[in-house]
Write a protein that binds this DNA or RNA. Structure first.
Length: 581
RNA sequence: GCUAGUGUGGCUCAAUGGCAGAGCACAUCACUCGUAAUGAUGAGGUUGUGGGUUCGAUUCCCACCACUAGCUCCA
């Protein structure tokens, strides 16, 4: 640890601070509920947690008691002492802690087995730590929640209780953090989706969202944007059927790997499946005719609606649903074209995210254990993705074994309002589907060759992307996406006729315009339009009617002054076409 | 699916083992108003669903459904 930097600016210090907080949590639990067994308790991005196995259910009231005990431990200023033990003695020391025993047994032969002791509490731990519990500011500790978590992340093993907490060096920092979380919740797309009347999900269809008129505007604008982008990038568009014969899914390999997540139906006594992915349909479309190497790369897009049976507990607003639209694309290509095609897709996705102002990170997911291809292809394909990322200076983290069953992938992850990340874009390299479907093209040598495929999405799913967009903009969508772009608000009925004239002109100009003719005060109309985050409000009173002008107000509360309708129309049309926020 | 919690008009939330209440929204009427809430009146709920305990359940118990947080899984 950098001895000169005892602040959270130093990630090592922050980590040690939170890790020590986690040990204090465990010590407090041990004092209050001695029967509790301890699993692991690391520091994480926003704080720390400890996984425990206990008779006690850690309700919010119990957490408060534990918090109080944690503050006591901080006051006691217990020194943390590190010591090491040979394996046998370590196991003896931890003999009443079955989870620790398992951890010790799984350590490699030559591993150093170290412990940290603070007062009456000792924990198996590699460290590092603060030198005393007194270093932790007691009143800047907060236990935030208790949830279930599988021991060792394995859903077949016991579910433990995970107690989440966070800690800071000052109480003000804790308060600021808690307030930030509260603020972020106001941007939750589920809340905004209801308030802005974008979408709904009912008990009759968990995971199957309804898109309401305003949400449909977002969808349609996004889809138009997607079509135009892909037209420019040299893609063709197809639409493949939602229901196809079950046999297809055996051929594609989805049956073995994915049938738990699929929905089925019978037609004329035959078994059919509702597609969970678009690629097999895309394969059939490719196979409709012979191709020449001159046709490659062949880029084919599809806004494909897929259905997947997700576990009920995994559903989450629009972010995780059971029916969604992938902005799918398949590229069929030769080996020589691979690098440039992959790079082209990376740049395409990057340009989309940059346009919206998103921060994202890239993950390289390598082939999973149940990868269906050869070892040689596995290594080759993973290396291709790695090379493209590295030669183009893209930063990424590796996610071992998280690729598709047919190949490795590059994933793009976007953040939601409270910092959870969601995979949106993906680029998957696939040597397997072309093999299984016996795809071919004729090379310059007159011989048949097998193309290589990329599966890719940029937005990911339209549904998830709308969720992310909603949170990113807190519902104040850029003008080109805004469900209602202009709200006309006459101050009195005397301006009604003029308002109707303005409305018609804007409507005819293709602007999404609405008018509020209710007998309400102008302040009230403005308040409602503000809450609906409508970008432009036209306030029309006697003065404007007389001068044949419009008074323009923005949702940022700005008064843009009065102007002619022509100037206003020109202004917003240019703003719409620039697609700028 | 798992662990814990939650479920009361469209929304946000009260209340209680004994006739279910408020604010906002909605409707009607009045008001015609200059940049974030005009007033009055009215309508709207078998308290998620199904069982059980009880003289009586929205409240207590059980099951199921849905939602929330997290785990697992994933776009």
């Amino acid at each position: 640890m950098d001895e000169n930097k005892y602040t959270f600016d130093n990630p090592d210090f922050k980590h040690a601070y939170r890790h020590t907080s986690s040990h204090i949590l465990a010590q407090a639990i041990k004092r209050l509920y001695p029967e509790t067994k301890f699993a692991i308790g690391p520091a994480i991005d926003e704080g720390f947690y400890y996984d425990v196995d206990s008779e006690t259910v850690f309700t919010p009231e119990v957490l408060e008691k534990i918090e109080a005990e944690m503050r006591n431990i901080c006051k006691e200023k217990l020194p943390l002492e590190r010591f090491e033990l040979p394996r046998a003695e370590a196991l003896e020391l931890m003999r009443d802690e079955p989870y620790k025993v398992e951890l010790i047994n799984d350590l490699p032969e030559d591993a150093v087995i170290s412990f940290y002791k603070q007062g009456d509490f000792t924990d198996l731990c590699a460290g590092p730590h603060m030198d005393s519990t007194g270093r932790i500011k007691g009143n800047a500790i907060k236990l935030t929640s208790c949830t279930g978590a599988y021991w060792r992340g394995d859903s077949k093993r016991k579910m433990l209780q995970r107690i989440y907490g966070t800690s800071f060096q000052k109480k003000e920092e804790l308060d600021a953090y808690l307030e930030r979380i509260e603020e972020a919740k106001k941007r939750d797309h589920r809340k905004l989706g209801r308030e802005l009347d974008l979408f709904m999900i009912t008990d009759e269809g968990p995971g199957f969202p309804f898109f309401l008129p305003k949400g449909m505007v977002l969808r349609n604008e996004l889809e138009s944007f997607w079509r135009e982008l892909h037209r420019q990038c040299g893609y063709q568009e197809i639409k493949t059927p939602m229901i196809l014969n079950e046999e297809l899914w055996h051929r594609s390999g989805h049956w073995d790997k994915y049938k738990e997540n699929m929905y089925f139906t019978k037609i004329d006594g035959e078994d059919y499946a509702i597609k969970p992915m678009n690629c097999p349909g895309g394969m059939l479309a490719y196979k409709r005719r012979p191709w020449s190497y001159k046709d490659l790369p062949l880029r084919v897009g599809e806004l494909g609606v897929v259905h997947r049976h997700e576990l009920s507990g995994a559903l989450h607003g629009l972010m995780r649903v059971r029916c969604f639209t992938q902005d799918d694309a398949h590229i069929f290509m030769t080996r020589e074209q691979m690098h440039s095609e992959i790079l082209g897709v990376i740049n395409k996705i990057d340009s989309v995210y940059r346009m919206f102002g998103f921060n994202y990170h890239i993950e390289l997911s390598t082939c999973p254990p149940n990868f269906i291809g050869s070892q040689e292809i596995r290594e080759y394909s993973e290396n291709v993705l790695r090379e493209v990322l590295e030669t183009n200076g893209k930063e990424y983290i590796v996610n071992p074994g998280d690729g598709a069953f047919y190949g490795p992938k590059i994933d793009f992850h976007l953040e939601d309002a409270i910092g959870r990340t969601w995979q949106c874009g993906t680029i998957q390299l696939d040597f397997q589907m072309p093999e299984r479907f016996e795809l071919e093209y004729t090379g310059a040598d007159g011989e048949k060759h097998r193309p290589i495929m990329i599966h890719t999405v940029a937005l990911g799913s339209i549904e998830r992307f709308i969720g992310i967009l909603t949170e990113h903009f807190a519902g104040a969508f850029p003008l080109w996406l805004a469900p209602v772009q202009v709200m006309i608000m006459p101050i009195t009925d005397r301006s009604r006729e003029y308002s109707e004239e303005i409305y018609k002109k804007l409507f005819d100009a293709g602007i999404r315009v609405e008018a509020d003719y209710r007998s309400e005060k102008i302040g009230y109309k403005i308040r409602e339009a503000q809450l609906q985050k409508i970008p432009y409000m036209l306030v029309l009173g006697d003065k404007e009617t007389e001068a044949r002008l419009v008074a323009v107000r923005t949702r940022l509360g700005g008064d843009e002054g009065t102007m002619t309708l022509e100037d206003f129309t020109e202004k917003i049309k240019s703003e719409i076409s620039s697609k700028k926020n």
